[in-house]
Simulated assay, not measured.
Amino acid sequence: MKNFIESVVRTPGMLFMSMLITGFTINAGVQYINATGFEGPNLLAAGCLLVGQFIVAVVHQMRRFGQNNTLILQ
């Protein structure tokens, strides 16, 4: 399980997407505190990035599993 978590964390783009999610969430909080009414697009962007991050992790794990698989199809 530890190797799986380390593999997901080291997936290319995962750290950058996490930083963007944090930025959009903080910006949404600031917009909410200032009562500007523009927190929705920031939360939508953060949600889309979260879904994208999950998809990237799944695809990367599938590729990694496919490369480690030694099954020879005939």
Rank of each mutant, 00 (worst) to 15 (best):
M1N: 06
K2E: 14
N3W: 03
N3S: 09
F4P: 01
F4C: 00
I5P: 00
I5Y: 07
S7Q: 14
R10P: 01
T11M: 04
T11F: 05
G13V: 01
M14R: 03
M14S: 01
M17Y: 01
M17L: 15
M17N: 13
S18D: 03
S18I: 04
L20T: 03
T22K: 11
T22M: 15
T22P: 05
T22C: 11
T22L: 14
G23D: 12
T25D: 06
T25Y: 09
I26H: 06
I26S: 15
I26L: 15
N27S: 15
V30L: 13
V30C: 06
Q31I: 07
Q31P: 01
Q31E: 15
Y32L: 14
I33L: 07
I33H: 14
N34W: 08
A35G: 03
A35R: 12
A35T: 08
T36M: 03
T36D: 09
T36F: 05
T36H: 12
G37W: 10
G37F: 12
F38Q: 01
F38L: 14
E39Q: 14
N42M: 15
N42I: 00
L43A: 11
L43G: 08
A45E: 11
A45C: 10
A45K: 06
A46Y: 05
A46D: 01
G47D: 11
G47C: 12
C48Q: 05
L49K: 00
L49D: 01
L49V: 08
L50V: 12
L50R: 09
L50Y: 13
L50N: 07
G52M: 08
G52E: 02
G52H: 02
Q53G: 08
F54Q: 10
F54E: 13
F54Y: 09
F54T: 12
I55Q: 03
I55A: 10
I55E: 05
I55W: 06
V56N: 05
V56F: 07
V56R: 04
V56W: 01
V56I: 04
V58R: 01
V58M: 10
H60I: 04
H60Q: 10
H60M: 04
Q61H: 06
Q61M: 14
R63W: 04
R63Q: 13
F65T: 03
F65Y: 09
G66Q: 02
Q67F: 13
N68M: 08
N68K: 10
N69M: 00
N69D: 13
T70P: 06
L71H: 05
I72M: 12
I72G: 05
L73Y: 01
L73W: 02
